[in-house]
Deep mutational scan, measured.
Amino acid sequence: DRIFMTRTEALEFLLKAHQTAVDKIGHPSHKQTPADHAAIEALDRLLLDVRARRVDQFQINASAAQIIVTD
């Protein structure tokens, strides 16, 4: 599946995904793992790359739809 978004929409989408990941590892019942921190770092890099126009398409994980940034 493909989803087309403007750059602004894609950045909002990534910010929400980032916040969800941060909230998940901050929850008291969740045991933090290196994979959790790696996922947040990957989202940080992706946010910067989309914002800087170095990336025009991405996929958060293998089961997610491919996001295509349109400007």
Rank of each mutant, 00 (worst) to 15 (best):
Ala62Asp: 13
Ser29His: 10
Asp49Ile: 03
Arg51Gly: 09
Gln59Tyr: 11
Gln32Trp: 15
Lys16His: 08
Gly26Thr: 14
Leu46Met: 04
Ala42Asp: 07
Leu48Val: 13
His30Lys: 06
His18Thr: 05
Thr6Leu: 03
Arg54Ser: 05
Pro28Gln: 09
Ser29Ala: 12
Arg54Met: 06
Ile25Arg: 05
Ala52Glu: 14
Leu48Ser: 14
His37Ile: 14
His30Gly: 08
Ile60Tyr: 04
Val69Glu: 02
Glu9Ala: 09
Ile67Pro: 00
Phe13Thr: 03
Ala52Trp: 11
Gln59Met: 09
Asp44Tyr: 15
Val69Met: 06
Ile3Asn: 02
Gln32Tyr: 12
Val50Ser: 00
Gln19Met: 08
Ile68Phe: 12
Lys31Ile: 13
Ala35His: 08
Ile68Pro: 01
Val22Pro: 01
Arg7Trp: 13
Ala17Met: 14
Lys24Asn: 09
Ala65Val: 15
Thr70Cys: 10
Leu47Met: 11
Ala52Val: 05
Ala21Gly: 02
Lys16Glu: 07
Lys31Asn: 13
His18Lys: 15
Ile40Trp: 03
Asp36Leu: 15
Leu47Ala: 04
Ala64Leu: 09
Asp36Ile: 08
Gly26Glu: 09
Asp1Arg: 02
His18Gln: 09
Arg7Met: 08
Gln57Lys: 12
Gln57Met: 13
Ala42Gly: 05
Pro28Asn: 08
Asn61Leu: 08
Ala17His: 07
Arg45Trp: 03
Glu12Tyr: 11
Asp36Thr: 05
Gln66Met: 15
Ala42Gln: 11
Phe13Cys: 04
Glu9Arg: 05
Arg2Asn: 06
Phe4Ile: 06
Glu9Ile: 03
Thr70His: 09
Gln19Val: 06
Phe4Ala: 04
Gln19Gly: 05
Ile40Thr: 03
Arg7Thr: 04
Gln59Pro: 03
Ala35Asn: 10
Ser63Arg: 11
Glu9Leu: 05
Val22Glu: 04
Arg7Asp: 01
Ala17Phe: 07
Asn61Phe: 11
Pro28Ser: 11
Met5Leu: 07
Phe4Asn: 03
Ala21Phe: 13
Glu9Phe: 03
Val50Thr: 01
Ile40Leu: 12
Leu11Trp: 04
Ala42Glu: 11
Leu15Arg: 14
Glu41Ala: 14
His37Cys: 07
